[in-house]
């Protein structure tokens, strides 16, 4: 079997697993868990976008969630009774990507000379500014509906079929969360594809060169300003797409969903998984979505079974363990759980 055959076979297996996952999970664990998978796909898209900025180009961005917010609110404003506009998803999503990309450039431009901690602080500030705007743009003209958020957003609908309603196909009932799952996975695969292609390209190498040594990158003729802005724009675009999907999926958005903790969570997915390594980032996104959820459901009943009562609030315990896990990973696997092979080789030395 040649390498090519093997990789086709691998892809076929992954494809089958991805296609069957929601059916199996839905039948065994229930639709709540399919919903978790939906979120995992959304977060993976976000993490892959942030990975371009942080992992490839080495620009520590703590305000990344802002682009998710831009995509989500754009969808909410253009497909809800709030303004009475009901654009179809195929128009709103690309527009959201574009607008988020423009925001990426606008927020990136003032930070170009900053690095490391300084960049982190400024991007954190920008992220908060966007959230605060969303929170307050309800007066004098009501644009965002303020802290109450925007409700009754149109569900994403494809070929006249709203994904929020279940469909019977081949004798299986596909619930709304399952339909969303398929859409999200297809789009996530698209983003993975774009990420892989970018990484192994002239632009991708320029990003990594800037991360490795900005001065030398300049001396090699890289226009670092443009190439960094491109990283911000690409990352933001992915964020905008996921934001739009999030809005259509939840049918509700409010500024609360786009706080600093969310930015940090997405950053954790990237760092924990393996910065700059796409499979690692996917793993990070999957783990940090699924494990806390498993914990939330499992911790209470388990304490009940072992101690006869719930000693520790599962929510507090969850954050505690999350923190410990993070520290452990940084101590023992500083390059992440699934780093790029060449980094791993270095750490083994």
């Amino acid at each position: 079997m040649t390498a090519k055959h093997r990789s086709w076979l691998g892809m076929a297996l992954i494809g089958t697993a991805l296609a069957l996952a929601p059916i199996v999970v839905g039948a065994s664990l229930g639709n709540a868990w399919v919903r978790v998978l939906d979120f995992a796909a959304l977060y993976i898209m976000l993490a892959l976008g942030l990975n371009i900025v942080v992992g490839f180009a080495g620009l520590l961005d703590l305000g990344y969630i802002a682009f998710y917010a831009v995509g989500a609110y754009l969808y909410a404003l253009l497909a809800s009774p709030h303004f009475g506009i009901h654009w179809p998803v195929w128009a709103v999503l690309p527009l959201g990507a574009l607008v988020a990309g423009i925001f990426g450039v606008l927020l990136g431009a003032p930070t170009l000379r900053l690095r490391g901690d300084y960049l982190a602080i400024v991007t954190l500030g920008f992220g908060e500014i966007i959230r605060i705007f969303l929170n307050n743009l309800n007066t004098p003209v009501n644009i965002t509906n303020g802290p109450k958020g925007i409700a009754r957003i149109d569900a994403i609908s494809l070929f006249g079929q709203p994904l929020s309603k279940s469909v019977d196909f081949l004798g299986i009932t596909f619930s709304g969360v399952m339909l969303y799952y398929y859409l999200f996975v297809v789009l996530a695969l698209g983003i993975v594809f774009v990420g892989i292609r970018l990484q192994d390209s002239r632009i991708g190498r320029a990003w990594v060169a800037i991360r490795e040594d900005e001065v030398a990158a300049k001396a090699c003729g890289i226009n670092t300003r443009n190439v960094k802005l491109l990283a911000f724009a690409m990352g933001a675009t992915f964020g905008g797409v996921s934001g739009g999907l999030f809005a259509g999926f939840q049918e509700f958005v409010s500024p609360e969903s786009f706080g600093l903790m969310e930015s940090i969570m997405v950053l954790c997915m990237v760092v924990l998984g393996g910065m700059g390594h796409i499979p690692g980032v996917i793993l990070g996104g999957l783990m940090l979505t699924v494990l806390p959820e498993a914990f939330r459901h499992g911790a209470g009943p388990m304490q009940q079974a072992v101690f006869g009562k719930v000693l520790l609030d599962p929510e507090a315990l969850r954050m505690l363990l999350f923190g410990l896990a993070l520290i452990a990973v940084m101590l023992y696997r500083p390059a992440g759980l699934w780093p790029e092979p060449r980094h791993r080789r270095e750490l083994a030395k």
Binding site: A206, C220, I222
Partner: peptide, 14 residues
């Protein structure tokens, strides 16, 4: 990377 300045491919090409 040294050849960046003599090449052209952009995002779309990538």
């Amino acid at each position: 990377v040294g050849r960046h300045v003599r090449t052209r491919a952009g995002v779309v090409g990538a």
